[in-house]
Simulated scan of single mutants.
Amino acid sequence: MKSVTVAGIDCGTNSIRLKIARVDDQGMHEIVPRILRVIRLGQDVDKTHRFAQDALDRAYTAAAEFAGVLAQHPVDAIRFVATSATRDAVNRDTFEDGIEQILGVRPEVIPGTEEADLSFLGATSVVSRGELEPPYLVVDLGGGSTELVLGGDGIDAPSTQVQAAFSMDIGSVRMTERHLRHDPPSETEIAEAIADIDEHIDEAFRMVPAGRTRTIIGVSGTVPR
Rank of each mutant, 00 (worst) to 15 (best):
M1N: 00
K2I: 08
S3W: 00
V4K: 08
V4Q: 01
V6G: 03
G8V: 07
D10I: 00
C11S: 15
C11F: 10
N14A: 15
S15Q: 12
I16V: 10
I16W: 04
L18N: 02
K19G: 02
A21C: 09
V23A: 13
D24W: 08
Q26E: 09
G27Y: 15
G27D: 14
H29A: 12
I31P: 01
R34K: 13
L41P: 14
Q43N: 11
Q43M: 03
Q43W: 10
D44L: 09
D46Q: 10
K47M: 08
D54A: 10
D54P: 01
A55Y: 06
D57E: 14
D57P: 00
A59T: 10
A59I: 08
Y60T: 08
E65V: 11
F66K: 07
F66M: 12
F66S: 12
A67R: 07
G68K: 13
L70Q: 09
Q72T: 01
A77T: 07
R79C: 15
V81M: 02
A82E: 10
A82Q: 09
S84Y: 07
A85T: 05
T86E: 00
T86G: 04
A89V: 13
V90A: 08
V90E: 04
V90M: 10
N91F: 12
N91Q: 06
N91H: 11
R92C: 06
R92M: 02
D93R: 06
D93I: 04
F95E: 08
F95G: 02
E96C: 14
D97A: 07
I102G: 04
R106F: 06
P107D: 04
P107F: 05
P107W: 10
I110Y: 10
I110S: 14
T113N: 01
E114R: 14
E114A: 00
E115S: 09
A116M: 01
L118V: 01
F120C: 03
T124C: 01
R129C: 00
E131C: 02
L132I: 01
L132D: 15
L132N: 04
P135R: 06
Y136H: 07
L137G: 00
G142I: 01
G143Q: 07
G144T: 04
T146Q: 09
T146D: 02
T146W: 06
V149Y: 00
A157Y: 10
A164R: 05
A165L: 04
F166W: 05
M168G: 04
M168N: 07
D169M: 14
D169A: 10
S172D: 05
R174T: 15
R178L: 12
H179P: 06
L180W: 12
R181L: 06
H182G: 06
H182A: 03
P184T: 04
P184N: 03
P184C: 03
S186W: 03
S186V: 09
T188H: 11
T188D: 15
E189R: 06
E189K: 14
E192T: 13
E192R: 11
E192G: 07
E192F: 03
D196L: 05
D196S: 12
D196M: 05
D196A: 15
I197A: 09
I197C: 12
D198R: 08
E199Q: 08
E199A: 09
I201D: 05
D202L: 01
F205T: 14
F205H: 09
R206D: 08
R206Q: 11
M207F: 14
P209D: 15
P209G: 07
G211A: 14
T215Q: 04
I216T: 14
I216P: 13
T222E: 13
V223E: 03
P224G: 00
R225K: 08
R225S: 01
